[in-house]
Design a protein around this nucleic acid. Structure first.
Lengths: 242, 242
DNA sequence: GCTGTTTATAGTCAACGTGACTATTAAAGA
DNA sequence: TCTTTAATAGTCACGTTGACTATAAACAGC
């Protein structure tokens, strides 16, 4: 089955689809674009597009992300981008056979809703997950898969810092967990756990942020070199004992 | 970028590649086939092949698995098959642009090395991971990714039973963990943990296997309905405290 | 049969992580 | 100044886990 006779295989179109998440106003938001073209014209969809002839899926995903969000290439190159899975149902696109590699990306809360790429995608905006209406193609399914993957990975990786600006307080980090998991966490316990995990966060030498907040000023932290969380930070009320 | 102008995208070939694992003789083995055709002819490779026009990647993976192993369709349909990730480097195939969706599969130790599918693949055999020489394409990378994914999933899922026959002893289950992780586990502690996890295994009503073994006969268990392991069964010596 | 080996199973104990709290400190707003 | 809000410090009991020891039930060899 691995012969390379040109008639032995079917040509497919290959796309990437991106579930780009951010935490905004106490809710987990996802980036959606309004489709301007034929299948599902006018519907909201995840950003994405076709692979160029010499692009890998990851390269294409970062390119699309830069185009769609208007972020600088250097910023996009540093973002957490994770391949989710590939969707290949024969009928997932009404027109033709399209195989799509889905990615999940995490970005800190961005100043403006979003810029717009070329003249192709009509609009782009942040929408709280759960308030997205029906989406084009199987994008609701992709979004659902991405959401649960991100939630699960917060348990045993350090990627929560990907939702935070370069310097952040432990309160901000905790609210990332609380927003993604949609649960409340005990503040002292969260703090104890995060600080007890070597390399998760590291204190910024001097400074404590006074201005905006209306409580005791919090210390600032940066993301540390660790990527995994051992032992994991399990979310509560997830149908398990202890 | 999501227009459907037929000239807007490049056609790709799409394949599936399978990392099929089993535990044989105290080692984790992977199923390899010897390529009979042009690119990398004579080299060992993971089984796989092109998607048929109306197949999803998962359907194609199960079809290839059945063809390559000679297992009955019903058996293949019940196996644990998990999408790993998609490999899309532009140069991963020297001939053309091929995007491959990789899967990992777990099978119990099978009686015979393996049957052979059509007349296409020259040979198929089980090889201990780590004793595979160089592999065709980027299959060494895929195998490596599959191996670490399987090892990680043993920690927080119940899929270890996928390596076991329908009825098994706790000693056999433990040796699956020990083989995949390549570490020794304390037997009483392993037993306590497995039995304390509701739905992981359930005792077979009557019977204890006496024949083959040369110690006290062990009780037989079946895989239970649970799929997740909460709290996880963390592997030791993995660079973390406790 | 007896004895040693092998494996399964039972049980103990201390260390650690975690959930549930309470208390204190330091800012902003009334 | 007093209240409110949030950060930080600290306590305590419980459950899980790692490291052990002990017993039971088979077989192999003498």
């Amino acid at each position: 089955m691995k012969g390379y006779d040109p008639h032995a295989f079917e040509p497919f179109a290959v796309t990437v689809d991106l579930a780009v998440f951010t935490v905004r106003g106490g809710a987990l938001n996802v980036l959606l674009i309004r489709r301007g073209q034929d299948p599902y014209a006018g519907a909201w969809a995840l950003p994405g597009g076709f692979l160029l002839p010499r692009e890998s899926a990851e390269t294409a995903a970062r390119r699309e992300l830069a185009e769609e969000t208007g972020l600088a290439e250097a910023v996009v190159a540093a973002l957490h981008l994770e391949q989710l899975r590939t969707y290949s149902d024969p009928d997932r696109d009404p027109r033709m056979r399209v195989v799509s590699v889905a990615f999940a990306a995490l970005v800190p809360d961005m100043p403006e809703p979003v810029a717009e790429g070329g003249g192709d995608a009509a609009q782009a905006r942040w929408v709280p997950v759960g308030e997205t209406g029906p989406l084009a193609f199987d994008h609701a399914r992709i979004l659902s898969d991405a959401r649960s993957r991100i939630g699960a990975k917060l348990e045993y990786t350090c990627l929560a810092t990907g939702f935070c600006p370069p310097e952040f307080t432990l309160g901000e980090l905790q609210s990332v967990y609380e927003t993604v998991w949609d649960t409340a966490l005990d503040r002292p316990n969260f703090r104890r756990k995060v600080l007890a995990t070597p390399g998760f966060v590291e204190a910024v030498p001097g400074a404590a942020r006074l201005t905006g907040g209306r409580g005791k000023p919090a210390a600032l932290y940066r993301a540390g070199p660790a990527t995994a969380l051992h032992p994991p930070l399990l979310r509560p009320t997830e149908g398990h004992a202890q």
